[in-house]
Design a protein around this nucleic acid. Sequence first.
DNA 1: ACAGTTTCTGACATCGATGTCAAATCACAC
DNA 2: GTGTGATTTGACATCGATGTCAGAAACTGT
Lengths: 341, 341
Amino acid sequence: MSVITIKDVAARAGVSAKTVSRVINGEAHVRPELRERVERVVAELDYRPNAFARSLSSSRSYLLGLFIDDPVSGYAADVQHGALMRCRERSYHLVVEPVDLAGAGWEGQVRSSIAALRLDGAIIAPPICDEAALTALFAEAGLPMVLVAPGSKALSSGSVSMDDRSAAREMTDYLLGLGHRRIAFIQGPESHRSSVRREDGFRDAMVQAGVAVDENAILRGDFTFRAGLELGERLLAGPDRPTAIFAANDDMALGALITAMKLGIAVPETLSICGFDDAASSRAAWPQLTTIRQPKAEMAGAAVDILVDPQFRKQAGGAQSHLLLPHELIVRGSTARAPAA
Amino acid sequence: MSVITIKDVAARAGVSAKTVSRVINGEAHVRPELRERVERVVAELDYRPNAFARSLSSSRSYLLGLFIDDPVSGYAADVQHGALMRCRERSYHLVVEPVDLAGAGWEGQVRSSIAALRLDGAIIAPPICDEAALTALFAEAGLPMVLVAPGSKALSSGSVSMDDRSAAREMTDYLLGLGHRRIAFIQGPESHRSSVRREDGFRDAMVQAGVAVDENAILRGDFTFRAGLELGERLLAGPDRPTAIFAANDDMALGALITAMKLGIAVPETLSICGFDDAASSRAAWPQLTTIRQPKAEMAGAAVDILVDPQFRKQAGGAQSHLLLPHELIVRGSTARAPAA
DNA sequence: ACAGTTTCTGACATCGATGTCAAATCACAC
DNA sequence: GTGTGATTTGACATCGATGTCAGAAACTGT
């Protein structure tokens, strides 16, 4: 017999299939003695329930969807890894679905995933978690969802985030504490809402310290390394250059760092640079980047928990928990006391 | 009615469920007229077949598994992306399963995925595609598999790879052509078989050019950035330092690059550095890395094709095609003519 | 026009689990 | 020993599709 079914187990244990089912799913109302007998047979035969049959009858899929904009980015990889590990612990599986909001037909793609896979829940990564048209699709299907680091909490979904604003404030305070006054800020794309919060935090700290914000030193990039290169050049080529650059993500900070090198500006002696994310690449540069550790994997793991835990799942209309995870300021070699001049 | 089933479509089109099924699956033996009618109703109702029911009855899951060692790496991300896109085109789904060969219990995990998900096929990424104990598990389950860039072709599985040896030879020839003679090679871990091929290619070129290989300048790293830092230091700190360093992957090349910077060695003027992979990070450094573009996404896509195409699937014992995809030498700023001295 | 093919089509069983519900068993008090 | 209520257990229907197979319809060629 190539595949072992629940009936085989039942026959061998001398009970009904239903009882075996009860044991497997840890339901109550099974005499300990029987339970043990069934468990032994399950182990003996190395029986594994067929997920499809189970899904079909229970209308639970044991599948979570991770919807993500750019699955190639390091950010995505960290989120995915966190989700994957937690899924594994809870014997769920993860289906990764790229969503290209720029391309046509993404709605159909998403609809199709929802309808065909009968996902038990959706995890939506930034920046697409801020896209109302997307979340509406899930809401419409009554699919519980958890947003990872959304710009704002939605009513119809759970969320897991960090406090971007406070984190940015801490970083700015740290720079101010090092004596920096001319601090440039490289902002992320407007569509990435949580990144907007970072600018808020930056301004908070500056205002509170009574330091004027130079609006010409607040630039907007698209989170890419290339943007960091170009905006870095814009900031550093002219006169009155800043003594510190704070970029809203690591890739852009790295771009600025490389530009500084090209221009022969010493980092951190003459210029401090810091990022945000603690991407893998932030350690793959020299000097290594001072940055904010964003708990990406932890957020994803928590998202899985919210979707899987019965206490959350029961909430009609989906999981509605909102978790805030702690971040951490990581000081590395790219920042130092402001130059004396 | 919240969920539309095949019966709804059948009723509305005035045919049997089986006929609808035929239309959906593009089977022959349906009168064009009926086919069209059914298609119209499917579109009208926006019907999507339930994947579980389908899987249960057809014992095909429309699911492919991607088994990967370290899902966080950039390499993994590229492979995954390639597989994902192709899956989407062919309306398959991808389940990513991390396999930690170092940890205990990975066998059980994999077995469980195979048994519970009834995958239609497995894509196995390097370096674990070279692990006989792992592939044996799939073979045992009769699950078709395709290895991505394996060290050697197995009989029981398909494979998709690039010619690592030739690629390394080309790179070495290129360095030799620039006048370099003292060329160091940073090798990858022994377990990563295809990387061993890169050393072969390096030696081929050196021997063919009649240049002696300095065995002290062939070091072994573990593919990490950190290894590149340390081995780079070992190569560059002493006397007789090489004029070029060829690393078996980009992360290590990057490490070496940073070390050179720390030591104040000008790249590429005094030292040329090149990598292998064309990882995203190879462009996020300055100077940008000369490297070999490995067709990662294409390989993964081809793996999907092999597993999905009926012509391959029919082969008893699994897909056994072996594809070789072209690579490309990408010259960027990190290499230059050897210094005159 | 008719037997012999070939091409369509649908009735029904089936995949392997879980939900429902009623029957069987047990525990305890009187 | 019997009645009451709680706990265990299993028979059977069900989820939504596809596989099988037999019958109906449409073509052959003579």
